[in-house]
């Protein structure tokens, strides 16, 4: 992930993000750099300590999630060798049990996926379109509007929740009811409001990040296509989007993680039912009612971590690039 020396400043887009054109050239020089040992012994020790400190809490939780309840409650996870015990029971209980007293994470897990996938794709497409407009279409007030959108990242979500909810009642609610009448399989309480909310809240950051990248696309390419008679739609989907793909991928990961990990939007817009509510909400509840049931909490927490961790570890080089395009998401 560190193979491309890029200038990671938003404050400096003029020299800019060189991913689009400069990356290939620079990879060569970089890989020739010889890796050397850590700067000094102290530095090695300090980094080791930090790395261990940062990993231990998660590791402890992970170990505990496979221990039987009595052992979690009575002995520390670091005594696992003195008090051995291994079980998948915690996981099967939190995921599969049909009893009301089980967390029944299975359906919340599906909800999280069903919220996060469209919750990533919708704002990404709309955001890319807007970013393209800001970067390549000249219009009066363009600067002002762009800066306003940037500034909006800073509006606390809490401020927007109540009025937005009322708006949804007026406009989205009838739609949801109709949908339920036509397709009874779709509950009245469906994902629509959560999707729309995440799209709205995600847009400012996405526009801002993608704008930096899209404005670096060589103008000649776009001009050439236009001369060839390509329509605006064709230019956008056939040329701009593919060229911006590295940035889009990174922003997508960022948005995906954000939506997946969100609690506040879910609390307000999902209604808390099993039809819609995501994992985070169920987890937050478990900590409230089940303060002492560590066997459930540990397993449940890990279930919620698994997808972000898969996404993170397999895509981290893109993730980092997305951050480098200058993130200011709160």
């Amino acid at each position: 992930m560190s193979t491309t020396p890029i200038v990671p400043t938003t404050t400096d887009t003029a020299t800019g993000n060189k991913l689009a054109k400069g990356a290939d050239a620079e990879v060569g020089t970089k890989s020739r750099r010889v890796k050397r040992r850590l700067t000094s012994r102290t530095a090695t020790v300090v980094s080791l300590i930090i790395a261990v400190l940062w990993t231990i809490p998660t590791f402890g939780l992970f170990v505990s999630s496979f221990r039987p309840a009595e052992l979690i409650q009575s002995t520390g996870w670091w005594t696992i060798f003195q008090n051995p015990g291994f079980t998948f029971g915690n996981y099967s209980e939190v995921l599969l049990s049909a009893s009301q007293s089980s967390p029944q994470l299975g359906s919340y897990f599906v909800n999280s996926l069903a919220i996060a996938i469209p919750g990533t794709i919708f704002p990404l497409i709309l955001g890319a379109m807007a970013a393209y407009a800001f970067a390549w279409m000249k219009f009066r007030g363009s600067n002002g509007v762009f800066i306003l959108i940037f500034a909006l990242q800073i509006v606390p979500l809490q401020m927007a929740l109540l009025p937005l909810l009322q708006m949804f009642t007026t406009f989205l609610r009838p739609l949801q009811n109709n949908l339920h009448d036509v397709l009874p399989m779709i509950p009245e309480q469906n994902y629509l409001p959560v999707w729309v909310a995440h799209t709205m809240f995600g847009l400012p950051l996405i526009i801002f990040l993608l704008h930096n990248f899209i404005s670096e696309i060589p103008g000649e390419v776009i001009e050439a296509a236009r001369v060839d008679g390509a329509s605006p739609g064709q230019i956008f989907f056939r040329i701009v989007l593919p060229l911006a793909l590295p940035a889009i991928a990174s922003v997508a990961i960022f948005q995906f993680l954000w939506v997946w990990n969100d609690l506040l939007v879910a609390l307000i817009f999902s209604g808390g039912t099993q039809d819609v509510a995501p994992l985070t909400q169920r987890l937050a509840e478990l900590t409230g009612t089940r303060g002492q049931d560590w066997q459930r909490l540990t397993a449940a927490a890990f279930v919620s971590l698994i997808i972000p961790l898969i996404v993170f570890f397999s895509l981290q080089r893109y993730f980092v690039r997305g951050l480098l395009a200058g993130s200011t998401k709160g």
């Binding site: 790395a51 927490a301 993170f312």
Partner: peptide, 17 residues
């Protein structure tokens, strides 16, 4: 990766940890 990993964990998950 080790130090960056918590970024991928939800704050609720982090709270439990």
């Amino acid at each position: 990766a080790l130090v960056f990993m918590p970024m991928a964990i939800s704050m609720v998950g982090a709270g439990i940890i």
